[in-house]
């Protein structure tokens, strides 16, 4: 530790739209982006299961082959020039949000393992004095059974991290975020 203390976080409050969402970024793909298209739809709910209509949800993910567009990822698999991996949007009156993205590839785990494809998620809202990090995995991916992070989560709570395929032709997944109470989403200390 150094003597420098970190700047503490504060809530985004209710008035963040101009500052953070002047240009919402919930279409994360371009026509030429490589990978399987997925649409993620969800809601943010509070401890009364009331919709949180003033939340910001951010996504950060690897591309279709599991490479992050970031200098710390120096592996040799290709970047996709048409995919940044970042998304950000707000919730509406019903607490709803959506993203159009691709299914990410698997990424390595320290010590030689592999993490199942996942999207890193951050939630900001009035009433959150610090944002809440979580992860989105795909329920229909067999790799989730062996994911080293999911295995550290008590089994009864793992389902909160699994986006569920909605019946129908298009690959649409449901991922609700429950801040508190019944079905409370697992949040991570990172």
């Amino acid at each position: 530790m150094t003597g420098r203390g970190l700047t503490p976080p504060q809530t985004v409050g209710p008035f963040f739209h101009g500052g953070m969402l002047q240009r919402p970024l919930n279409v994360m793909v371009a026509p030429e982006t490589k990978g399987d298209r997925v649409r993620i739809e969800g809601h943010v709910y509070d401890g009364d299961h009331a919709p949180v209509s003033d939340a910001v949800v951010e996504f950060w993910q690897a591309n279709a082959v599991g490479r992050y567009r970031h200098p710390a990822d120096q592996r040799s698999m290709p970047l996709d020039q048409s995919f940044a991996g970042f998304g950000r949007t707000g919730t509406d009156e019903a607490g709803a949000f959506w993203f159009e993205t691709i299914r990410p590839g698997p990424v390595p785990f320290p010590g030689g393992g592999t993490q199942a494809p996942h999207i890193n998620v951050a939630v900001f809202a009035r009433g959150l004095l610090h944002h809440l990090p979580t992860r989105l995995y795909f329920e229909d991916d067999p790799a989730v059974r062996d994911d080293p992070v999911l295995r550290t989560v008590p089994e009864v709570r793992r389902a909160t991290l699994l986006a569920k395929r909605i019946a129908g032709g298009k690959p649409v997944y449901r991922f609700d975020i429950v801040l508190q109470g019944d079905g409370e989403t697992v949040f991570f200390l990172i």
Binding site: E58, W60, A62, F86, P108, R126, L129, L132, F188
Partner: peptide, 30 residues
């Protein structure tokens, strides 16, 4: 701060090791 009462998680956060998912981030691209 009343808005925390129904919006703060009640379960402890679960610590995860820093993997490529945590040591990368959108800073450079944004």
């Amino acid at each position: 701060y009343r808005s925390t009462v129904r919006r703060s998680p009640r379960q402890p956060l679960i610590a995860v090791p820093h993997t490529l998912s945590e040591i990368t981030g959108p800073g450079p691209v944004v």
